[in-house]
């Protein structure tokens, strides 16, 4: 019945939220974990490249929201973007990098492992 100190203190605290539990799981990729970014990466995983507008339509989001999250993925070097002009209109094409694809696969494995772990309990 010897429980660790961490567990004892827990008893007096309110139940930890799902987010708390998840954030304590090692190696959970926070960059990909966020819904919008997960959507961007999933969509790019099955396409060579997608334009800003295609992603916006697919994920049904706003310009601002998409660009914030796309930039975050860019900073992590999970996606790369190429800006050009098409009929004088600026066009941004996003593409998954090798690093991004690896991170995506790792995330998928992680989710599967979580499910597996809960089943084996």
């Amino acid at each position: 019945m010897a429980k660790s100190a961490a567990v004892k203190t827990l008893k007096n605290k309110p139940a930890p939220s799902l987010e708390q539990v998840e954030s304590s799981v090692p190696n959970l990729d926070r960059v990909i974990h966020e819904r919008m970014r997960l959507g961007i990466v999933s969509a790019l995983a099955v396409n060579d490249s997608l334009s800003f507008n295609e992603l916006k339509k697919l994920l049904q989001t706003s310009d601002g929201n998409l660009s914030v999250h796309a930039r975050r993925l860019e900073e992590a070097e999970y996606v790369e973007c190429e800006k050009s002009f098409e009929n004088r209109m600026p066009k941004t094409e996003y593409r998954l990098t090798a690093r991004g694809r690896k991170a995506f696969e790792r995330y998928l494995n992680h989710m599967e492992a979580l499910i597996q772990a809960m089943r084996e309990r």
């Binding site: 429980k3 660790s4 961490a6 567990v7 827990l10 008893k11 139940a15 930890p16 799902l18 539990v21 998840e22 304590s24 799981v25 090692p26 819904r35 997960l38 959507g39 999933s42 998928l108 989710m111 599967e112 979580l114 499910i115 772990a117 809960m118 089943r119 309990r121």
Partner: peptide, 27 residues
């Protein structure tokens, strides 16, 4: 680590697997 592994047992079951399954479905 102990926190991460035991928390679900001590409190109401947290459907972390359901959340993960939901993530996979979204993907």
């Amino acid at each position: 680590m102990a926190f991460a592994q035991r928390a679900p047992k001590l409190t109401k079951p947290i459907p972390i697997d359901r959340k993960a399954a939901d993530n996979l479905r979204f993907i």
